[in-house]
Amino acid sequence: MEFKQRHLLGIQHLDVSDILTVLDTAESLSEISTREVKKVPTLRGKTIVNLFFEPSTRTRSSFELAAKRLSADIINFSQQTSSVVKGESLKDTVLNFEAMNPDALVIRHSCSGAPHFVSTFCRSHVINAGDGSHEHPTQALLDAFTIRQAKKSFRDLRVVIVGDILHSRVARSNVFLLSKLGAQITLVGPPSLLPEEFKNFGATISHSLDESLAGADVIMMLRIQTERQKANFFPSIREYRNLYCLTEKRFQLANKDAIIMHPGPINRGVEISSEMADSVKSVILKQVENGIAIRMAILYLLLGGRERETAD
């Protein structure tokens, strides 16, 4: 069992054994968070920088807690209170942090490819915590971890991902990951938010939620942003809700042991009804809990246990 990556830039770069290594490592680390003293010394002396160029609640806190539970030192950077507002470039910001000898940089950025760009010139391990509309690898890994707890096997599992696929990094990373593990993925949304070309990534395309739910084992709802309505991707929240909101009635169409997922933050009553978000079939908060184990696993696999590789 080995994780062969220097950085975690995206699921795209991982093979099945990398993915299973992360999931298995997360499983063994998840117990730490249930202890009375939620801390192990594994990454003592390691320094991690949370570089968040875009607002985030969940992912940022999750990385912070993951680092702390492994005894790493972590500092938080946020764009609003930094030199970026004085016009400092991403490259200079990163080089300045690098001068303080961190071991890993966790990067969230609104521009797709920003972590790849950083990885071309920095020495530290780069962890992508979400880049633009591109990838959100730790989210997909925690989603897979959560699915595995409920479903045991990914082979031929029927996964339905619903919403703003076009702009969703969560959807992309999940499609890449779950298709590598053998799941059957159906992407659902209006054509304006789900171009035909997505079928090239190993998923089936549908514009009807009702039709897609038949036989579904996993239903993943995505947040719909109101700005998309202003840009005419769909006519109104009312119409979107009528076509794509996961309601009690629609949920009956899925397999009876189907689980409901959402990467958050949720819009109750828009893409998911309140009763569905809070139902026993919902694993939404379990996803948040599992996020810490996955991020502990990533930090451990990249930073722990072995000497740092020389930069290539």
Partner: peptide, 11 residues
């Protein structure tokens, strides 16, 4: 705009 832009998440 095409498969590659969708893959890379670039508008």
């Amino acid at each position: 705009e095409g498969s590659h832009s969708y893959f890379l998440g670039l508008k």
